[in-house]
Design a protein around this nucleic acid. Sequence first.
DNA 1: CGGCCATCGTTCGTGTACAAACAATCGGGC
DNA 2: GCCCGATTGTTTGTACACGAACGATGGCCG
Lengths: 154, 154
Amino acid sequence: MKRGTLETLSGPDADGASYVLEEQIGHLLRRAHQRHTSLFQEKIGDIQLTPLQFAALIKLRDVDEVSQNQLGRMTAMDAATMQGVIHRLLARGLIERKRDSADRRRLQLSLSRSGQALVDECADIGNEISEQTLAPLEPEDRRLFLDMLSRLSF
Amino acid sequence: MKRGTLETLSGPDADGASYVLEEQIGHLLRRAHQRHTSLFQEKIGDIQLTPLQFAALIKLRDVDEVSQNQLGRMTAMDAATMQGVIHRLLARGLIERKRDSADRRRLQLSLSRSGQALVDECADIGNEISEQTLAPLEPEDRRLFLDMLSRLSF
DNA sequence: CGGCCATCGTTCGTGTACAAACAATCGGGC
DNA sequence: GCCCGATTGTTTGTACACGAACGATGGCCG
């Protein structure tokens, strides 16, 4: 009855059928990332920071003052995504924002006093989270894994 | 061994200040996942499927008929997340949905005719995408990497 | 000087991701 | 039979993720 593409129906040949979702890199990356954010939420507890918010705070601690777009590049966030993150951090008073007098397009970001305190308080937790995420691997494999993973990140 | 809180505000020794964002597993997982979805979009092109939509279609091809929650577990999707994915696939006529007569809570999902055709067409592209995502690694390292990664996924 | 293009921040629309609450239904224990 | 707890699907609210378009500014070049 069906014509056109002759070989359409389910030949037992092992081409298309060989796509096993559970073995695909994309699926595994997504699940590993899910597990990490889950661990992050659990460990960060009452502090109520998301991984992205934490990343932004850490970077601000490292560089002191940057514009929104710069911070976005440092943390691999889209300019649109930054909007949300920045507004939530501003609303909690963890960062401050002021116009750059030299380049009036820019908004310079910096840690507030309480933001600084929070980062100092959380840095150790951050390391714990990373360690716990890697826990299923043998300690001697972790460095290798991170090296390989970083090669897959742009 | 001391598991107390005493050394939490320790100096710039090994912990606190040494949190380098670019070396954290969570950040790397996120960036690798970003790169993968970017490659996916590019390769899938006009077909306009997202990784999740593709995963759902692939699983439906494998199992023929399942309920929404079952499919969600197979593809690691939240029940709420499934809603969106399913509605978009329904809107494009790629899947069909009908009440289970035995258990009237359930909605049984299955591939439509055009959904079946689309999956057959895309399976090869899926393999290409996975291969290209892994391209930065030496071929002999890829299996090892996938093994380690899968251990980090729940 | 005046265009021209890049950059900066913003908004909108679409698509994950998940917690939390909900009605409907099922199953088991009594 | 009936009640109770579990499961199924749904909605709401919050938070990433990114393409696309926009106004405002800045640097450059002719």
